[in-house]
């Protein structure tokens, strides 16, 4: 679509949506959110970009083929499950690390649970974009 208003607004909106999607991804552990919703939000941002500038431009901005992103996400999610074996736990047990923890403060907790969510995020972005961009180019 060739619209000055849309392409000008897109420049701000896409950035906001992408940042918000990462925010949703990160808050997902204890509050509503997570990889799936975050991934959908990111997808909406990129689809908006594709509507404003065409799907070829969107593909170029992505750098990677959507399906490659999805499969990479699957690999990351799988890795998050497999990591548990290194610690002798059952498959998919969450592994936690608390760097900078002092006393009662949890510091900066990172976990394989987040890694799994990032995998889901990428699978959703890749899979949905593959469908949407595919349909967009069909017509």
């Amino acid at each position: 679509m060739n619209s000055l208003i849309l392409s000008a607004a897109t420049r701000i909106l896409v950035a906001l949506m992408l940042v918000f999607s990462v925010y949703m991804l990160l808050r997902g552990h204890n509050e509503p959110g997570g990889g799936f919703i975050g991934g959908l939000l990111a997808t909406i941002g990129i689809v908006l970009y594709a509507i404003a500038h065409g799907s070829a431009a969107a593909r170029k901005a992505l750098r990677l083929d959507p399906l490659t992103i999805a499969m990479g996400g699957l690999g990351i999610a799988l890795l998050a499950g497999v990591l548990a074996v290194l610690f002798g736990d059952p498959f998919f047990s969450g592994q936690w690390s608390f760097p900078f923890a002092e006393g009662g403060d949890k510091g900066f907790p990172i976990s394989t649970v987040l890694l799994f969510d990032i995998g889901v995020y990428l699978v959703v972005v890749g899979a949905v974009l593959a469908i949407v961009l595919g349909l967009e180019e069909e017509v």
Binding site: L67, M71, G72, L78, P90, F91
Partner: peptide, 22 residues
């Protein structure tokens, strides 16, 4: 024992990721 049960699912998924990239 837990791994023996999970591997028949993990292996094809891991293979899928690798063969897709190749």
């Amino acid at each position: 024992m837990s791994w023996l049960l999970a591997l028949p699912v993990i292996l094809p998924f891991a293979t899928a990721v690798l063969v897709f990239l190749l």
